[in-house]
Amino acid sequence: MDVLVTGAHGTVGTAITDHLGDDDRYTFTLLDIEDVPSPHETVVADIREYDEIRPHFEGQDAVVHLALIPGTGGPDSRALTWNTAQAENLEALHNVYEAAIDAGLDSILFASSNHAVGMVEAKNAPEVYHDRGIVAGHEEPHRPDSPYGLTKSYGEDLGRLAAEAHGIRVYGLRLGTIRNPEYDHPYGDAEYGVDEGRWERGSDAYEKWVARMKGLWQSRRDLAQMVACCLDDDSVEWDHFYGVSGNERRWLDDLDHARETIGYEPRDDGEQWDGPPE
């Protein structure tokens, strides 16, 4: 299977190629705004420019769309402001979907986010990090917590239109917390804060970030497995799945649906860790 990955050199893209790059089932083409040495074919293009990206969709079976325009704001920015970067990001979404449809691809995997339903967390923190009664199930409607989350909701809805109107399979991956290899564990965000001098290990702030990540963490190998499950699937028309590991305290909870629909069986659980790696 030939797979194009946009924004391929970022945290999520490298998780895919680190764990699936040697899998004979897939041949990856990595598309990004800058060239980075890689054993896989790499092409340089700006997803804001349709004519730049369109040729690279030829001959592909699927696209994994990860690229995000810099300056779109983060999930912690809840001011209802709009800027050029956000508008360009939506235009880029249209470019990717249009190119995939025009080139006759079988499927699109869209990197959505937990922030598409993030108001569940915002309204219930910090209890949501400990109370298994507070969950966003598979049928949870869009509840974006920021303009960032709003763009992810839009991408999911655009995908549904593409699927139902044009017959391409679309998978929205509502990703939780995925980190680079050195922080790929449920203490990762807390340890990063220590390394940055923001707080001390064992402080209230440290423990808060541990509790949060133990629910939202998706290990790099579990993320890659979820991507593989979607790439191998031929039954879904349009659907979304929460990108988390099998965390006991997860508040994004559609694991049964993901297991039954695409065969996702996460290997990791935040509760398996009682401290950061030595």
Rank of each mutant, 00 (worst) to 15 (best):
I168T: 09
G172Q: 02
L175S: 06
T177H: 10
I178R: 00
N180H: 10
P181C: 08
E182L: 11
D184G: 10
D184M: 05
P186V: 10
D189S: 14
D189A: 14
E191V: 14
E191L: 09
Y192R: 15
G193R: 04
V194Q: 00
V194F: 02
G197M: 07
R198Y: 05
W199T: 14
W199F: 05
E200K: 08
R201T: 15
R201V: 14
G202H: 09
S203E: 00
S203V: 13
D204H: 12
D204S: 14
W209S: 03
A211V: 11
A211W: 09
M213T: 08
K214E: 09
G215I: 03
W217C: 03
Q218W: 05
Q218P: 01
L223G: 02
A224M: 05
A224P: 03
C229Q: 06
C229K: 06
D234E: 13
S235R: 15
W238T: 09
G243W: 08
G243K: 04
V244E: 06
N247G: 06
R249H: 13
R250D: 10
R250V: 07
W251Q: 04
W251P: 04
W251F: 15
D253T: 08
D253P: 03
D254Q: 12
H257Q: 04
H257M: 06
A258D: 07
A258Q: 05
T261I: 03
I262T: 01
I262P: 01
Y264Q: 07
E265A: 15
P266D: 13
D269G: 09
G270P: 04
Q272M: 12
